[in-house]
């Protein structure tokens, strides 16, 4: 009885949260259309969220390409299909693994970062201080961060994909003696627009989700240091979940529009 009640109240909370996040998103779209615009802060956030994530995304992407190729090699060799390596690796990385892994990494780095930063700003009344200083904190903090994440993530994903393919090419070069030129020729032979474009569109949504949830959790952080930790933690959890939901929808939509 108690557990079922608990379950019901949890479900209600869950839907309330979804409603809240939706309202937050609507508020974002309203705010982004109305002046004043915080361009300077937007650039600063692009630098922090985008540029500062390059190393992380690059290293993960490189290892991803490396490991993926190393792991697939024996299987493909068994079938005598090593020549399919570039096409297989490139399609999986560009379509799915690259965007999702990069987005998850960024959810961990950017999402939790935003959650913690805004959370602590809320707790230490910095957001109130901004409001009193005549600056709309939603515009200054939230709009800039969500926008920056939305703009930066596709770039990070492209960057990560490229590094991952480079890692894969490196393995093929060292182990299979395949030249980089041949490898990338094969890659571009295998890829089509319907691989790259949906993945790129998808990555904008990934970025938006990371920024949105991080900001939401941080902006409405509960009082106290525990609240900050929870905000940053929940930002990652919710974002990761949301990323997979978006990915699922994206694959669904891609299927409808790109497979004639």
């Amino acid at each position: 009885m108690a557990t079922s009640l608990n379950l019901i109240s949890r479900t209600i909370t869950f839907f309330e949260e979804i409603g809240d996040i939706t309202l937050f998103a609507i508020r974002y779209f309203r705010a982004i259309l109305m002046p004043p615009f915080e361009f300077k802060e937007l650039l600063r956030q692009c630098y922090i969220l985008g540029y500062r994530s390059i190393l992380l995304v690059g290293v993960t992407g490189f290892i991803l390409g490396l490991v993926f190729t190393l792991q697939s090699r024996p299987t493909l060799m068994e079938f005598g299909a090593e020549s399919w390596m570039p096409s297989m690796v490139s399609i999986s990385i560009v379509r799915e693994i690259g965007p999702v892994i990069t987005a998850l990494i960024c959810a961990g780095k950017i999402g939790s970062g935003i959650g913690a930063e805004l959370g602590s700003m809320r707790v230490t009344e910095q957001i109130d201080a901004m409001e009193v200083s005549g600056t709309n904190p939603f515009k200054y903090l939230v709009v800039t961060r969500i926008t920056a994440a939305t703009l930066m993530l596709p770039l990070l994903i492209v960057f990560g994909d490229a590094i991952a393919l480079f890692g894969s090419a490196l393995v093929e070069n060292l182990k299979g003696g395949v030249s980089f030129t041949l490898y990338f020729n094969k890659v571009f032979e295998a890829l089509s627009f319907s691989d790259v474009i949906p993945a790129t569109i998808k990555s904008f949504f990934f970025g938006f989700a990371i920024g949105l949830v991080g900001c939401y959790k941080g902006y409405y952080c509960k009082k106290g240091t525990a609240g900050v930790g929870e905000a940053s933690n929940m930002a990652v959890v919710y974002t990761s979940m949301l990323l997979f939901v978006i990915d699922f929808i994206a694959v669904f939509v891609t299927d409808i529009f790109f497979e004639v």
Partner: peptide, 15 residues
């Protein structure tokens, strides 16, 4: 609000 200065409890400096 420009007529009012507000000193917050924990200083609330932007970190």
């Amino acid at each position: 609000r420009t007529e009012i200065g507000f000193l917050f409890q924990g200083s609330a400096l932007y970190d």
